[in-house]
Write a protein that binds this DNA or RNA. Structure first.
Lengths: 208, 208, 208, 208
DNA sequence: GATGAATGAGTATTCATTCAT
DNA sequence: CATGAATGAATACTCATTCAT
């Protein structure tokens, strides 16, 4: 599941075990990173939280930053999985867009702390790992680009081709925005009301 | 200038000196935080960069987090100042909105690294300080809310009152987005093209 | 061969197997110790190098220091074997000395890295093991003492009896010296030139 | 005194203080290295032994290996100083050699543990530092070369020019040998007896 | 006999902060 | 007011050894 899990070397050979233990590590670390942030979480805390000894944990990772990478990768996998659940090629572009956006906003509501973690800690990743994570964000954005293209093709959406990429980014950001502006938005809007208005706006623009 | 500078106690009594030294500290720290991030910058480095001894620096702050607060506060002051330069009550709401948005996008382009810093390090502030910084973000957002209200009143903008706050947030975020998505956006758009499209879209929505 | 191999307990009973596996361990460890030194070599590396699992390796030793002991012991065995090859009781003392010294210098040239290892790592052995290794050094030295004695008896060498032990040590050290001073000696002398001069000197002294 | 002390950067600016504290560090570390060896001595032990907090100690060094370098450098300085005390250009080469050798053997007796430390731990130094230390050994050896040359010139010593360097090394090693073979030599000889015999031998060789 | 996952005490090093001068 | 030496708790990571399978 965690797609790039295998990019990180492990001392332990047994693939199954590695998968399993890393899932433990991700679960524990994610919890702590969300509560205290990456830098204020110690490796020992992570080990304790996921029920491994510090030595055992290090059999499955090479550095603390690996843990952050695993967590970020896992979150992106989760986001991608959830979004893809709502995708279907049998629909019109417009219908697809509607469903995908709805799902995107729903997921942002449900996993808002996870997404916030991505926003706040991606910069703590080493260069290489960071660009992998950013690449994944691009891929998700590309899902919306494809939908928009399809809508243009099947004439259910009207949008200047030069705006396709931008609009895809806008959809992503206006969804993610709930995660990092909830502290202000929630004063005026529920997630549902927020979703309704933003989707209406986005859809209107894509209709013209 | 740094509005809340006086919230932070200093050992030194001479107000003028405090102001001056803190300006030094902010300048040096901001540079380093932008380059290496808050956690990877040491107090010694900050002191060296701003030409003070470590002991002297601590005469003007109480903790490393104070420095982060000063920097964030200063950035917000700068942003606010720049935005307010473009405001004038003699115009129509629509004209104001146009000018304010243009300025906002322009500033986001110019100070994108500063804004990125805010996005990435605000979470490292102690609770109290963070809420002060978030409050400032709210105040800037409120500037757009006021403009939108004025436009509704003078009939140059058409917008459902329940959407005013949301639209103000959208304006803010679509501007700031350039700072944290530049790595992807810049592949397709220049800042000018980006600004043109986003402003057109936002304006269209506020017109109906 | 490794004379004291049996001083070190093994979990495995099969003597043949123990002998065989320990030879593997010695070969791998010696290589690594020479390259990186005892302390910077890990047990895992040793196991990998000699093609055993870490668990299996520990069936044949009790501690990392045991490995060092085995290696040192093996080196001494090798040195002793080589030196004894050149000994023969049918010769005069003088002839024996000549041949033994020549062989000693030759071996020091060939196994200089081995001898250097002894010089550098003996001190890392536990007390007990160290004294065993030092004892072996004494025994080799004693070989030269015997030769010198024989030469005195058969009148082919002239040397004050009180100097016999010292001269034996001198022979040993002037040979080994090539291993730990090669970095300086090799600038001026080849091993052959070095051997020629040192042997000539030693022999002259033992003649009168 | 410790000639290359200034090759190692210190956080502390005050040269006097650096000199003083490093002397403390050297004293404490030397004691521990002699007793337990470099690898088995911890930085905390060194700090405790020399009466500094671990943090303070690290203000004066950059790494544990720096401490080893300081110690080795200091020992060599001491050896050089002592040896030079016995040198005088007003004497004949032969007289000089006599006095220098006597002093060398005397110092080897007095500082045998120090020299042993050099023999055993030099290899633990980082490449760069090691070659500096070896260079110092060369320089001391060169002192004997000069004396031998002088003796040849003033006709008080007879020695083939091609043997000068080798004989200098021999003098060095036959002195140092006491430090790493005392465990065997002391069974038969006192330092005085040892010195007498070795010097006699060396001198004889340099006479014809 | 063979394996390799698990363990956790142990290690070098850093760095925010203080305080005597 | 300025300085910078002193502090030591805190931290990421290692590695010899064990033991259940």
């Amino acid at each position: 599941m965690t797609r790039d899990s295998n990019r990180i070397p492990s001392m332990v050979k047994n693939r199954k075990l590695v998968e399993e233990r890393r899932a433990q590590i991700i679960r524990g670390a994610q919890k702590l990173f969300m509560r205290k942030g990456f830098h204020k979480t110690t490796t020992r805390e992570i080990a304790r939280e996921c029920g491994l000894s510090i030595g055992t944990m290090y059999e499955y990772i090479q550095s603390k930053e690996d843990v952050l990478y695993l967590v970020c990768d896992h979150i992106h996998s989760e986001l991608e999985t959830r979004l893809k659940e709502a995708l279907s090629v049998t629909e019109t572009g417009r219908e697809s867009l509607n469903r995908a956006m709805a799902q995107h906003f729903k997921v942002m509501g449900e996993l808002s702390d996870w997404v916030l973690l991505i926003y706040q800690e991606t910069k703590s990743l080493p260069k290489k790992a960071r660009s992998v994570i950013l690449q994944r964000e691009k891929e998700v954005t590309a899902l919306f680009e494809e939908i928009l293209q399809r809508g243009i093709q099947d004439n259910t959406l009207r949008l200047d081709p030069s705006s396709v990429s931008l609009m895809a980014h806008n959809i992503m950001v206006l969804g993610e925005m709930w995660t990092f502006r909830r502290w202000a938005l929630a004063e005026h809007y529920t997630l549902e009301e927020y979703t309704r208005q933003q989707m209406a706006w986005l859809l209107r623009e894509c209709t013209n």
